[in-house]
């Protein structure tokens, strides 16, 4: 595969959201390849599959059937092979509990799904072009939530 391409993985059970996500990234003209899975179980399978490329960042919806985002996050962070993966929470919820939990479990950033398509594009652009080396979780709780 082309080395300059960036692989991002979205785990979201909502078809519309997956559509918005793809459209937004496509419109951003970043050299990004979007992979999507529809629930947590599928995500874990995909990640554990040696054949799949290592994603640059995993966008993780919280509310999913079978296996929720928090469970996946827990699993990822407790797996030695996956624990260095950058995880961006991508959720409709703005509940304090969800933010708190995902922060504590080691997510890198929390994106509240915008209700405007342009804002979505901005947000995704920001996250993908982020230098993850310096944006590891636990550094700053204030900057954990993405401000578009």
């Amino acid at each position: 595969m082309n080395q300059s391409k960036i692989h991002v993985l979205l785990a979201d059970d909502d078809e519309d959201d997956r559509l918005f996500f793809r459209d937004a990234i496509n419109q951003l003209n970043l050299k990004t390849i979007v992979h999507t899975v529809e629930d947590g179980e599928e995500l874990m399978v995909w990640l554990r599959d040696e054949g799949n490329p290592q994603p640059h960042v995993v966008f993780l919806d919280l509310n999913m059937p079978k296996k929720g985002g928090i469970e996946c996050l827990e699993e990822i962070k407790s797996c030695p092979k996956l624990k260095d993966l950058s995880v961006a929470i991508y959720s409709t919820s703005s509940s304090q509990k969800d933010i708190e939990d995902s922060f504590v479990l080691g997510a890198n950033i929390y994106i509240k799904k915008p209700n405007d398509f342009n804002e979505l594009k901005k947000a995704l652009s920001k996250v993908i072009s982020m230098n993850w080396q310096f944006c590891t979780s636990g550094l700053n709780k204030e900057s954990f939530i993405l401000n578009v």
């Binding site: 909502d14 959201d17 959720s91 409709t92 509940s95 799904k113 915008p114 209700n115 405007d116 342009n118």
Partner: peptide, 24 residues
């Protein structure tokens, strides 16, 4: 609460997003 914060907002957000897409 969770339903309200998540499930109710979700369709709403989609409506908003679609409208924003149509407008733009």
């Amino acid at each position: 609460n969770y339903v309200a914060s998540h499930d109710l907002q979700e369709p709403l957000r989609k409506i908003q997003t679609f409208i924003s897409r149509i407008i733009h």
